[in-house]
Design a binder for these strands. Structure first.
Lengths: 152, 152
DNA sequence: TCCGTTCAGTTGCAAAATGAAACCAAATGG
DNA sequence: CCATTTGGTTTCATTTTGCAACTGAACGGA
């Protein structure tokens, strides 16, 4: 990598006006999503991530750097001068609803009946309820009952 | 493309037990996410998608085929013997919560203060409220107050 | 202190995915 | 019937990904 490689980050957004597209630009790839997933589940070190995801190490290096550059992860020093570890920033933690909806969609549609899969549970061991968009009055919303208003 | 190309679909899952990973395998790339976004916003034809996303046409062909093969889109005939159009299946429409959380995260973290962006509104023109994970009792849940239980 | 190991990468190279552009055939429109 | 549009396919150059081998700084123990 050349000494001056401060560019690489955003060769401009795919679709600058759309929040979905911006988020997709930042974390819309398999490995970034799985890194965030694992960070939420307690992964902290390079090898934590490498072992859990099975990602190639050069790609992991690149992704950790990218997520850090974009403010989703930070590098923190462990208590006793030990090795650096990665931790989610507030913005990173705020991806929780995204990971949850990905998980819940997967549970509903990506498994055959009878296949087992991991489950997200709260402190009591209770399964986290399905997350569904709703209006201010609590009425369920779908893609048919909503629209995108451009540039507001 | 060779005449027999029925493989391509799933050279096995990245992480078969994890619903997040399965979903990421199916739609965890920028273009698939944007195609789903646009389908939810009314895109139906090849050129609808091409113009809205700006995706290369060969890639669009491949993605539409892939999403169709995985049951997120179907090809439907328009009323008057017109050209084929794509439409979201039930599974595809059920990605709505995923797109909404991606959008909302983007709104919160991917724009500078003062930058404008598109907004998702319901039939009344009211902005869709933030979607946040909550326990059965309605208490907010975060990545710190939940855990993944493997293979349940 | 010296030695071996683990960690966190880097480097080199092959394979796969992506993108731009040209090409093409079936529908549609006039 | 002809021109145009639509929905692709093909070709080729560029980028990204992945694998495997290598490196160098930190520990860890004898």
């Amino acid at each position: 990598m050349a000494p001056d490689d401060t560019d690489r980050q955003s060769p401009a957004w795919t679709d600058p006006d759309c929040p979905v597209a911006r988020t997709a630009d930042l974390v819309g790839d398999r490995w970034s999503l799985l890194i965030v997933r694992d960070a939420m589940d307690g992964a902290r070190s390079f090898t934590d991530f490498q072992q859990r995801t099975g990602i190639a190490r050069n790609i992991l290096t690149e992704r950790l750097r990218r997520l850090t550059a974009h403010g989703l992860l930070t590098q923190v020093d462990a208590p006793s001068g030990r090795r650096r570890r990665y931790a989610l920033t507030e913005a990173g933690k705020d991806l929780f609803p995204v990971i949850v909806t990905l998980r819940q969609w997967g549970e509903r549609h990506a498994f055959e009946a009878g296949e087992t899969h991991s489950v997200l549970v709260d402190g009591d061991g209770t399964r986290v309820p399905d997350l569904r968009p709703a209006g201010a009055d609590g009425s369920p919303l779908t893609s048919d009952t909503t629209t995108v208003r451009r540039r507001s």
